[in-house]
């Protein structure tokens, strides 16, 4: 059974009957030009926007699920993260346990281990670099042990090293019964890590499926409005404006 199934998701001026499904263990990349509806799609899935349509989680409609329960299943990492107060790293990660109303030490340890931030648990968030902070925000979501990890452009504004690091962590999360859905602009990196692609254009699905079916020169050039050169056979894959 699909882990998450979306049917006719519609949001005025942003999403137009978007339907797709994600299998357990899959990593889905939501791609498309700016304003195509990538963030709107992720935020609708996270319950932040009042989109119409149906979302099923392991066959159960999300509509009937309490917000708290939904938050346990779906973890959301926004594009821009910050902390209003100079909190310790450990405290921020612990906020990921809020839907569970506990502070499960094993979940916190695991999240910090997976993101490699155990050493900075006591440090204040404002003493960390951008790349270190990105791992803390990621650990916050992981601590909630979500079935579906929704990440909105998690690698924007990170250097090459941290881009790979973050993608590795997300890839690791998308295994077994868990999945990752992420919005991403770096198509070549996405081609390397993701199983399936959802290409959005003006709020509609322009193409959906495996890298070979979605990442074609024709589909991408049409969606982005510029000629794009694609070489998926190359290692690593190459996707660049022609």
């Amino acid at each position: 059974m699909a882990l998450i199934e979306v049917k006719n998701l519609t949001l005025k001026d942003r999403l137009d009957s978007v339907s797709f499904s994600v299998e357990p263990g899959e990593m889905l990349a939501v791609i498309g030009p700016n304003g195509a509806g990538k963030s709107s799609l992720l935020q609708s899935l996270a319950g932040l926007l009042p989109a119409s349509g149906d979302i099923f989680l392991s066959g159960i409609p999300l509509r009937g699920i309490k917000p708290n329960e939904r938050a346990r299943q779906l973890g959301f990492l926004p594009q821009f993260c910050d902390s209003a107060w100079a909190l310790a790293v450990e405290e921020i990660v612990a906020l990921g346990r809020l839907p569970w109303r506990d502070r499960d030490p094993e979940a916190l340890r695991q999240a910090m281990r997976e993101t490699g931030i155990e050493g900075m648990a006591r440090k204040s968030i404002n003493q960390l670099s951008g790349g270190e902070q990105a791992r803390v925000w990621l650990a916050r979501v992981l601590a909630g042990t979500p079935q579906v990890f929704l990440a909105d452009e998690p690698i924007a504004s990170l250097d090459l090293y941290y881009q790979g690091k973050i993608m590795d962590i997300l890839r690791q999360h998308a295994s077994g019964a868990r999945s990752v859905i992420l919005a991403i602009h770096d198509l070549a990196l996405a081609a390397r890590y993701c199983d399936r692609f959802c290409l959005l254009k003006q709020g509609r699905i322009h193409a959906f499926g495996s890298p070979e079916t979605v990442l074609t020169e024709a589909a991408l050039s049409d969606a982005f409005g510029v000629p794009i050169h694609v070489d998926l056979a190359h290692s690593p894959p190459i996707i660049l404006p022609a």
Partner: peptide, 14 residues
């Protein structure tokens, strides 16, 4: 506590 990380994160935490 959740609002430390902003309104979006707070809403996503249910």
């Amino acid at each position: 506590a959740a609002l430390s990380l902003g309104e979006q994160v707070t809403a996503s935490l249910g």
